[in-house]
């Protein structure tokens, strides 16, 4: 039983007993894991206020072999998510990040890059400001960038550059400035191949280009061209795509 140190995002905290709770963490070095935090619900808890959803903390845990529940021995709060007291849209978007980390990754399957992406997304969501409409645009961009880059890091990115079935080039997939996106095939389809996918979503060319761009580093919230993209259409497609991948509609979607 070795003591391991790492950084973690708190995904979930559930009451376990009068004084203890079970936390699900997404850690930088070990991926997702669940751990028992004894005494966490006591007033003078060794975990201070670190064990709250969306908090980033430095943790020490004892890895139990052959058991999915590890033992958390220390947690120091590095960053608390504050936007929940200010704007609900940021909060719910951050909840969505947490839900996706929980659903898309496996226990003890480390993805340090994804961890860094998630922390920076949560930090940006927390500090996003602006009046309602502006804020909505900013949050859409942040969420979309997170989703596309996460999918790419996990090897699950949709195929956006050629027909995913026969590799016909992009021009052959365009019909009246739109392309067909096949959910079962996981990407765009040419006129011939789209007959074989029963779940087709029609996508505008600018949405297609926007989704491809979201995987890159230049997809910034202050970029005027990015802010003019059909963000609603892009988010809609991603919601369908992720729901299809997971086989279940993420719980947060009905709140977003």
């Amino acid at each position: 039983m070795a003591a391991e140190k790492t950084l973690a995002i708190v995904l979930r905290v559930t009451e376990f007993s009068e004084t203890s709770c079970v936390v699900t963490l997404f850690t930088q070095d070990f991926g997702k894991l669940s751990a028992l935090a004894k005494g966490a619900r006591r007033p003078k808890s060794p975990f201070e206020a670190a064990l709250d959803v969306l908090s980033v903390c430095r943790v020490v845990f004892l890895q139990k072999s052959g058991d999915s529940l590890h033992l958390l021995t220390e947690a120091k709060l590095e960053r608390r998510f504050r936007a929940g007291a200010r704007n609900l849209e940021s909060l719910y978007a951050a909840y969505y990040v947490v839900e996706l980390l929980g659903r898309m990754t496996d226990h003890l399957d480390p993805h340090p890059e994804l961890f860094r992406l998630a922390v920076s997304t949560i930090v940006e969501l927390d500090s996003a400001i602006g009046e309602k409409h502006e804020l909505h645009t900013t949050i859409s961009i942040l969420l979309m960038r997170f989703q596309m880059q996460m999918l790419s890091m996990l090897g699950q990115a949709p195929g956006l550059h050629a027909c995913v079935e026969c590799n016909a080039n992009l021009e052959e997939t365009i019909d009246k400035k739109r392309v067909a996106f096949g959910l079962n095939s996981g990407g765009i389809l040419c006129a011939k191949c789209k007959r074989n996918d029963r779940r087709i979503i029609s996508l505008s060319l600018s949405a297609l280009q926007g989704l491809a761009d979201a995987m890159g580093t230049n997809f910034g919230i202050n970029d005027a061209a990015v802010r003019k993209l059909p963000l609603g259409e892009m988010r809609g497609l991603l919601d369908w795509y992720i729901t299809h991948l997971l086989g279940i509609k993420p719980t947060i979607l009905k709140f977003l």
């Binding site: 709250d52 969306l54 908090s55 929940g84 007291a85 609900l88 909060l91």
Partner: peptide
């Protein structure tokens, strides 16, 4: 005084 509690309070105050 945690994220979910704050979110609940904000929803109600809205």
């Amino acid at each position: 005084p945690n994220v979910e509690g704050d979110g609940t309070a904000l929803y109600i105050s809205n």
